[in-house]
Each structure stands twice: as structure tokens, then as C-alpha cells.
Computed example of a mutant assay.
Amino acid sequence: MLFYRYDGGADGSANWPIQAKKIGNGWNFKQVFAGSNGAIYAITETGDMLFYRYAGGADGSANWPIQAKKIGNGWNFKQVFAGSNGAIYAITETGDMLFYRYAGGVDGSANWPIQAKKIGNGWNFKQVFAGSNGAIYAITETGDMLFYRYAGGADGSPNWPIQAKKIGNGWNFKQVFAGSNGAIYAITETGDMLFYRYAGGADGSPNWPIQARKIGNGWNFAEVFAGE
């Protein structure tokens, strides 16, 4: 696992104070994704979920106060991704979306105050990922990007003040993922990384103050994701 820190979010510049610091090995998992405050979740081929906390973000050091704590099993979903504050979303093979909240980040305990609450269906998209404050982005097979805002995190209710607002097209990339404060990163088939900032979260409008700024190349990795 390599660690990078990007500091060019204000203007989309290629500002990388930390690049390609090796912080671990053996990350041969079915899926890996990050939450807030250094939380990293890994799902094994058998559906176990492991929890890690990374604390070396200031200098890119291999600082792991929590490693490989098993916090669940049965995570055999089409896609799983995290939002902020312990929110985890799982999409089944039939397109149902389930909501979980993880509260064991301090010690890596299997603490789940909310588990497997069905909050929607029809999530049959090419890719789905979450940003901050309940923002969820979905990319269709034709490259349209849709915006949703989920507001039921306190109890796992299907509370969606914003649903399926089309905010863009042409999102035909190898991988797309979100960071904090509206940051979205896209990796092309040739390994270029592009930076976008979305500012329409309040109403789901197509408000993009920064679009398609090239901030790097050589991003030919098995998986790339952002934390907060």
C-alpha cells in the first residue's frame, strides 16, 4: 500500500507534498475502502471485514495503531463503500442498498449500532461512491453522473432529500472516487488522474467550479481510494 497526500484542492493544481510512500504490504483483498479519520476497511474473499486505522498522514509514515481487526462477516455484496462518521453502504446483487453504521473505530471492536437497514433499491449502476455529509454519486452505464443526498444516518431510515439529480456526463473512466469537501478524482484508462470539485450538494445542481484538471499520471494500480 502506497500513501499520497494531495493539497491542490483549492485550484486543481498538481500539488503533492507526499507521494508514493510505502506504508504496508499484503493488501491482497477483494475490496479495500476508506472512511473518515484514518479508517480503512478491507473485505476478504470469504466476506470477512477487517478494520485498520492509519495515523501516518502527516508524513506518510507506516503508522498503524489498529490493524486487521475482524469486525464482521458475510460482506458478500456487489459493492461496498464508506461515507463519513462510520457510515457504510452495501449494494446487493439485486440492486438493494443497505445502510450500516460502524462505531468501533477507537479500538477496532465489532460495534455496529445500525446494521443492514434497507434504504433503497434500483441501485444498478456501473459505479457508486460516497462523499462527505451524505453525498452519494452514481455513474450509469452510459457515463451519466447522478447525485443523491442521504439524510437517514442517525437511524438508518430511507431519508433521501435529493435523489438522482443528473449533474454530468462523460464519466467513462477506469475508476472514480470522492474525497472530502466535494473533491472527486477520476483515473483514465491510460493512468492519468483528473481532479474535479463538486459544489452543488445543497440542491443537486450541476455546479462544478473545477473540472478535469490533470494532477498526475502513472496511476496504474489495482485499487485507488481516498480517505478524510
Rank of each mutant, 00 (worst) to 15 (best):
E45Y: 01
E223M: 15
A68F: 08
V128A: 07
G182I: 05
I43N: 09
W64I: 11
G216F: 05
N37L: 12
A34Q: 06
A138I: 09
P206F: 00
G35F: 03
A116T: 09
V224Q: 14
W171T: 10
I88H: 02
L194T: 15
K166F: 02
Q67S: 14
K69H: 07
D11T: 14
G143I: 03
Q31N: 14
A55D: 14
N63D: 13
G12T: 11
R53W: 00
S84K: 05
G122I: 13
A82I: 11
A130W: 04
N37Q: 15
G24W: 05
D59V: 13
D11Y: 05
Y54C: 06
N172R: 02
G24P: 03
K22W: 00
G9Q: 11
G86N: 09
S205M: 02
D155T: 06
G170C: 09
G83C: 08
N121M: 02
K21W: 00
D59T: 15
A110G: 02
Q127Y: 00
G57I: 01
G201M: 05
Q127L: 09
G143S: 06
D144K: 11
G218S: 12
D96C: 03
G26N: 12
A178Y: 05
I184N: 11
W171Y: 10
A138K: 02
F173G: 03
A164C: 04
K118A: 07
G86Y: 04
M193T: 13
T44I: 10
A226H: 10
F195M: 07
G201S: 11
N133H: 12
W75F: 13
I43P: 15
E189R: 08
A154R: 06
E141D: 13
P158E: 12
A178R: 12
V80I: 14
V106H: 01
V176A: 12
A154F: 01
S61R: 04
S36V: 07
F195C: 01
I23H: 10
D59S: 12
A42K: 05
N76F: 02
I91E: 02
A183N: 08
K21L: 05
W27T: 12
A42Q: 12
D59M: 00
I210C: 07
W16F: 03
W112S: 05
S157T: 12
G72I: 07
A10P: 00
M145N: 09
W160Y: 05
E228K: 12
G72Q: 10
G201C: 02
M145F: 04
M145G: 08
R53S: 06
G201Q: 09
N37A: 15
G179R: 07
F173D: 04
N217D: 15
D155W: 00
K117D: 03
N133P: 07
D7G: 12
Y196N: 15
I139T: 04
A164H: 06
G104T: 03
S132K: 06
P161Y: 02
R5A: 04
A58F: 01
G134F: 01
A58D: 13
A164V: 02
A20R: 13
N73F: 08
K126E: 10
Y137C: 11
N63C: 04
A34H: 04
Y198W: 04
L98R: 11
P158N: 13
T44C: 09
A68D: 14
K174C: 00
N25G: 14
A87G: 06
A186W: 01
I139K: 04
G83W: 12
A42C: 15
G216D: 12
K69V: 09
L146S: 04
G60W: 01
Q175V: 06
